[in-house]
Simulated assay, not measured.
Amino acid sequence: MVRYVPASLILRIEGYGNYSWIYTKNGERYLVSKTLSYLELHLPFFWRVHKSHLVNPQYIQGCIASVRRNSLLRLNNNQSVTVARRLKATVCRLLKEKPHPKTPIEQVGLVVPQSNHEIR
C-alpha cells in the first residue's frame, strides 16, 4: 500500500545510500527507494544544505548556529540539520532572501509506503 504525501507536509529528506528518509511535519517518517539526487530534481524548491540533507525552506526557523565547527540549521519542529561548510554562505544568503518556490508547493508531492518501515 502506498499513499500520497504533499510536499508542503515534508520538513526534510535525509539520504541513506540508494534510499531516503522523508520526515513530515506530522512526525511521520517514510523510507523510499529513491536517491537524494533524484528527489532533489523532483523537488526543486527544497534546499540542498548537505550531501545527505534536503530541507523545505517553509519550515526553517531562520537561524544557523555553529557548534564545534559544524553549522546547524534549526527547523520549526526543533530538529537540527547539519549544513555543509562549503554551503554555509549560500544557505545564509538564501535565508536572508527566502525566495518563493519555483513551483507552487501545494501542487507537488511524493508517493510513499503506507507503513513507516516498508520499502517501496
Rank of each mutant, 00 (worst) to 15 (best):
Q58V: 10
Q58P: 02
S33Q: 13
E40H: 15
V32Q: 02
H53N: 05
F45H: 11
P57Y: 00
P44Q: 08
Q58A: 13
F45Y: 13
N56I: 07
L43M: 04
F46I: 04
I64D: 06
A65F: 11
Q61P: 02
V32E: 01
S66R: 07
A65E: 15
R48N: 03
R68F: 07
V32C: 09
Y38W: 15
H50M: 13
K51D: 11
L54E: 07
V32I: 15
S37H: 15
N70Q: 12
Q61Y: 15
W47T: 04
H42L: 11
H42S: 10
C63R: 11
V67T: 08
V49Y: 00
L36S: 07
A65Q: 11
A65W: 11
L36F: 06
E40R: 14
H42N: 09
R69I: 02
Q61F: 12
I64Q: 03
E40N: 15
K34F: 07
I60T: 13
C63A: 11
C63I: 15
L36A: 09
W47Q: 06
Y59F: 15
C63K: 12
L43P: 06
V55D: 04
R69S: 13
I60F: 03
W47Y: 11
F45A: 03
V67F: 14
V32R: 07
P57G: 01
Y59R: 08
T35I: 12
K34P: 10
P44Y: 02
Y59E: 04
L39K: 06
K34C: 12
V49C: 01
L41Q: 11
L39G: 06
Q61D: 09
H50D: 04
S66T: 13
P57H: 03
F46H: 08
Y38A: 12
V49I: 11
I60L: 11
K51W: 01
L54D: 09
S37M: 13
E40G: 15
Y38R: 15
L43F: 00
L41H: 10
L36N: 05
S52W: 03
L39T: 05
G62D: 00
T35N: 11
F45I: 06
